[in-house]
C-alpha cells in the first residue's frame, strides 16, 4: 500500500429523487488489481461504476486516477458538478468502460469502432491506430470479423469488440459493467476467457458481475455492495471462504436457490 493507487474513489454518494442509492462507497485499486464488485440487483454496484467515470455525477465524493483528482465544484441546488469538462474528457480516456449492452456504434464496422477513439479523440496517426486495432481484435479472437457491422455479430462477439474498443485507448483502469449479463449462457464463456486473459496480463480492472466463478478464481479482491454500502471487502478466500457477512451468505445462497 505504499504506491499511489491507480484508482482511488472516496466516499461516493448518489441519490435519485431522494432515494439514496450510494451511501458512501470508497475503494482503492492498486496497479494490477482485479476487483470483482458483487451485489444484489439494485444494490448500487452499477451506479458506483458509472460514478467513477462520471457517466453519473456523484452528489458527493471524489475520484482520483493515477494521482489526479477530478475537480468538482458545488452545484446550485445541491450536489456537485465537474469543474472542468476538459479534465473529465481526459480522465475518461484513461478509464476504459465496457457496458452490459456493448453499446457499439451501429454505423461503424468492428474495426472502425476500435479505431475511433485513438484516431479522433487521442488524434494519433491512422496507420498506427489501425495496426494496433487489428492486433487487439486478434487478441480478443474476432480479427476475421473486422469488417462486420455490430448488428451482424453475436452478443459475445459484440462484447469482445467492445472490450477491444476500450483497450485501444490504452486505459489505466478497465471498468466492466456486468459484461456478460446480456449474453446467452453459451456465449458467456468466450467473454470471460478474454477477461481472464486481461487479468493475467496484470491489467487493473473493476468488474461488476454476477459470475461467482470469475469473482472467486480470477479476481484478487472481492467487494460486496449492499444497500449502497460496502458490506464485505477482501480476498476471494476471505469473502467467500469465511463468509463473514450474513448478508453475503444470503446473497450467495439466493443465487444458487
Amino acid at each position: 500500500m505504499t504506491a499511489i493507487p491507480t484508482l482511488s474513489v472516496k466516499d461516493i454518494h448518489k441519490a435519485y429523487a431522494g432515494v439514496e442509492v450510494l451511501r458512501g462507497i470508497s475503494l482503492d485499486a492498486q496497479e494490477g488489481d482485479v476487483i470483482s464488485i458483487l451485489g444484489a440487483s439494485g444494490s448500487g454496484k452499477s451506479t458506483f461504476l458509472r460514478c467513477i467515470n462520471l457517466l453519473e455525477i456523484p452528489d458527493a465524493g471524489q475520484v482520483t486516477v493515477a494521482g489526479e483528482t477530478i475537480a468538482m465544484r458545488p452545484k446550485r441546488g445541491g450536489g456537485q458538478e465537474p469543474a472542468s469538462s476538459k479534465q473529465v474528457d481526459r480522465i475518461r480516456t484513461e478509464l476504459g468502460m465496457v457496458f452490459q449492452n456493448f453499446n457499439l456504434w451501429s454505423h461503424m464496422t468492428v474495426l472502425q469502432n476500435v479505431v475511433e477513439g485513438p484516431l479522433h479523440v487521442l488524434r494519433r496517426p491512422r496507420a498506427e491506430c489501425v495496426a494496433e486495432a487489428e492486433a487487439l481484435l486478434e487478441k480478443v479472437g474476432i480479427a476475421d470479423k473486422r469488417n462486420f457491422y455490430p448488428a451482424h455479430l453475436s452478443g459475445g462477439q459484440q462484447q469482445r469488440a467492445a472490450i477491444a474498443r476500450a483497450l485501444a485507448m490504452k486505459p489505466k483502469v478497465m471498468l466492466f459493467d456486468e459484461p456478460t449479463s446480456a449474453l446467452d449462457p453459451e456465449l458467456v464463456g468466450e467473454v470471460l476467457r478474454v477477461l481472464r486473459a486481461l487479468a493475467d496480463e496484470g491489467r487493473t480492472m473493476l468488474v461488476v458481475t454476477h459470475e461467482m466463478g470469475f469473482a472467486r478464481t480470477v479476481s484478487n479482491r472481492v467487494v460486496f455492495v449492499h444497500q449502497g454500502l460496502v458490506e464485505a471487502d477482501g480476498t476471494p478466500e476471505q469473502v467467500f471462504g469465511e463468509l463473514k457477512s450474513e448478508r453475503f451468505k444470503q446473497f450467495v445462497s439466493g443465487l444458487h436457490a
Binding site: L55, D89, R92, S106, G117, H120, R165
Partner: peptide
C-alpha cells in the same frame, strides 16, 4: 447508449 459510449471514450 451509443452517445454514452462516445462520452465514455472521452468525446464531447
Amino acid at each position: 447508449r451509443e452517445i454514452e459510449a462516445g462520452r465514455a471514450i472521452g468525446m464531447s
